[in-house]
Design a protein around this nucleic acid. Structure first.
Length: 592
RNA sequence: GGGGCGGUAGCUCAAUUGGUUAGAGUACCGGCCUGUCGAGCCGGUGGUUGCGGGUUCGAGUCCCGUCCGCCUCGCCA
């Protein structure tokens, strides 16, 4: 049907005959006898020209009738461009002198045009509603290509290392812990339900117990939680698991993978990827996924300000693990207006802090904000923070974790405002030594920091029940530019340890059997030491394509209400379908 | 579930204090034009101002409710 794609003709093809197929990108009708058609496919754009000197009258007439997004086949001789080259196009040195034209189909007046320049202006819901046009845009095509390249590279990389690709089921059993499940009613067992997998976690562990040794899968995961700019309810993971490995062996292989991805797809060398303990990440950057593209480290000033009688500091320090932390923002006093500081204060409060004590450094010491409360320790504080006139000092004081996290958020927002983030930099790291559990005030029980199958480090196993909060897990996350792109852990391969963890999480013996009996059975039938990782494929593509919108890297994404605007899912079903499933609605279906 | 922003022609936007027939660009339709490439020039079609109430002599504009989209908190082991 075609001899060439729309992106490949060059001056070396001049004088040969070519036939291309694609969409009419634009038309420029110069009058009865001359019309230019830019024809587009996935690979690019080629100009065709129909001149009445060359072609028959019917062809000429048909060419003049072409409109944007009509689908056509154009045949003719490849010529150097008569009217001058177009340096903006890869095919800009040539044109096809059209002599044959076939219209495959006509397009109604397109609601949007597949034009990258226009796309940023068009409301996203319109793009989603007409996704088949939006996806025609060069950027979207490049994104689909990038996603494909990443998947291909992933399979190749891991298959070469002996990983076996195994599919795991989509209709599975609902398990407690973690996100809300999407559930599917069973027709055969009325009143019983399948869940869609939040991840293949348990299956990949069972594959290890089954002797699979190394498993990989690019799989869909589903979590019925509200989406965000970088999060969809339905997303894709690169899922991996290995037997007979320790943490550092896994990290080594995965580091190789990530470096290969960025080397091969962007030509970037991420270099060595350091391992940072969780506690240090929070202490220094105020986040468990630190963005290390800029400095602004958090510093502990508890000991110094303890000497003041500032009530705010004193009451924070009186708390269990209470601290006062500070960040020094060099030469920012004139850029951080009162209004901006107020905004940063809101950020701090939003993330749990009571406020954001601040002061500025002048030739005369600290001025503004809480300056008068720290007069007594001016010299000591100045020396510790190595301040210079023009600096701004922002502080956080609370229980350690809250103080670090809220000030960490302030750090990010301040850096964005002051444009301190080197957007050309690529900073990756592994965060390791997470705590095993996190106390939930809400639920009044321990929650898994990672998931309930994560192993504690061996030397902490004895503390599981006596001091859960102090147990360090064998988990690890990989962070790139402040974004979590993957994470995993060494898993528990011992039934007793797994039982103990379930107990700490507040699962009753009976519950355990009911919910996880099959896993406990499997663990008791010879389980190898094993561990693995899951990478967020969507987030990797976001980084590779430099977008902060996850919907831009998914062909058919959903909105914040979980709707697909193109197909209008979710939709109603027939009463017969519900009857068959023995399912009833307690609320009438909302109408518009 | 909470907070913020938004919804006017197919698309992007405008419309004074509540006041005449809701405008412009673009797309689309028609005409002109033989070297354009974000083509150009002339003319034209196109509107339930998201939806439903209310206030008013009069509502795109004010009030109430509701739906939808985006950002965000909660949530996301």
């Amino acid at each position: 049907m075609r001899t060439h794609t729309c992106g490949e003709l060059r001056s070396s093809d001049v004088n040969s005959d070519a036939t291309v197929c694609g969409w009419v990108n634009t038309f420029r009708d110069q009058g009865k006898g001359l019309v230019f058609i830019d024809i587009r496919d996935r690979t690019g754009l080629t100009q065709a020209v129909f001149d009445q000197e060359d072609c028959e009258a019917e062809v000429m007439e048909l060419a003049r009738s072409l409109r944007r997004e009509d689908v056509v086949q154009i045949g003719g001789r490849v010529d150097p461009r008569e009217g001058g080259k177009n340096p903006k196009l890869d095919t800009g040195e040539i044109e096809i002198r059209g002599t044959a034209l076939k219209v495959f189909s006509r397009s109604n007046n397109p609601p949007i045009l597949p034009d990258d320049h226009e796309a940023s202006k068009i409301a996203e819901d319109v793009r989603l509603r007409h996704r088949y046009i939006d996806l025609r845009r060069p950027t979207m095509q490049r994104t689909l290509q990038m996603r494909h390249d990443l998947s291909t590279l992933t399979r190749e990389y891991f298959h070469n290392l002996g990983f076996l690709e195994v599919e795991t089921p989509l209709l599975i059993k609902s398990t407690p812990e973690g996100a809300r499940d999407f559930i599917v009613p069973s027709r055969v067992y009325p009143g019983k339900w399948y869940a869609l997998p939040q991840s293949p976690q348990i299956f990949k562990q069972i594959l290890m117990i089954a002797g699979c040794d190394r498993y990989m899968q690019i799989c869909k995961c589903l979590r019925d939680e509200d989406p965000r700019a970088d999060r969809q309810a339905e997303f894709t993971q690169i899922d991996l698991e290995m037997s007979f490995v320790d943490r550092d062996e896994i990290i080594k292989i995965m580091t190789g993978f990530v470096r290969r991805v960025f080397k091969q797809l962007l030509g970037l060398d991420l270099g060595q990827i350091p391992k940072i303990p969780w506690q240090l990440a929070l202490d220094k950057w105020g986040a468990d996924r630190p963005d290390m593209r800029f400095e602004l480290h958090l510093q502990d000033i508890s000991e110094i300000v303890a000497k003041t009688d500032f009530k705010v500091f004193q009451s924070a320090l009186a708390k269990d693990r209470g601290v006062v932390k500070a960040i020094r923002i060099p030469q920012s006093a004139d850029k951080l207006s009162r209004k901006i500081i107020d905004q940063l204060q809101e950020t701090a409060k939003l993330h749990g802090a009571g406020g954001l004590p601040w002061t500025k450094v002048t030739e005369n010491g600290f001025e503004g904000g809480i300056a008068k409360f720290i007069e007594g320790v001016t010299d000591e504080l100045s020396a510790a923070l190595e301040v210079e006139p023009g600096d701004t000092i922002l502080m956080g004081c609370d229980e350690w974790l809250k103080a670090c996290e809220s000030l960490g958020q302030v750090r990010l927002h301040a850096a964005r405002h002051l444009e301190l983030i080197d957007t050309t930099a690529w900073k990756a790291l592994w965060v390791v030594d997470f705590p095993m559990f996190r106390w939930s005030e809400d639920k009044q029980r321990w929650l898994s920091e990672h998931h309930p199958f994560t192993a504690p480090i061996p030397e902490d196993i004895h503390k599981l029940e006596s001091d859960p909060g102090a147990v360090v897990s064998a988990g690890y996350d990989i962070i790139l530019n402040g974004s979590e792109i993957g994470g995993g852990s060494i898993r528990i391969h011992d039934t007793e340890v797994q039982n103990t963890v379930f107990r700490v999480l507040g699962l009753e013996e009976e519950d355990m059997r009911e919910k996880f009996g099959f896993l406990l059975d499997a663990l008791s039938q010879g389980a190898p030491p094993h561990g693995g990782v899951a990478f967020g494929l969507d987030r990797l593509v976001m980084l590779l394509m430099s977008t902060d919108n996850i919907r831009d890297v998914i062909a058919f994404p959903k909105t914040q209400n979980g709707a697909d605007l193109m197909t209008e899912a979710p939709g109603p079903v027939d009463d017969e379908q519900l009857d068959e499933l023995k399912v009833q609605c307690t609320e009438p279906v909302a109408t518009e």
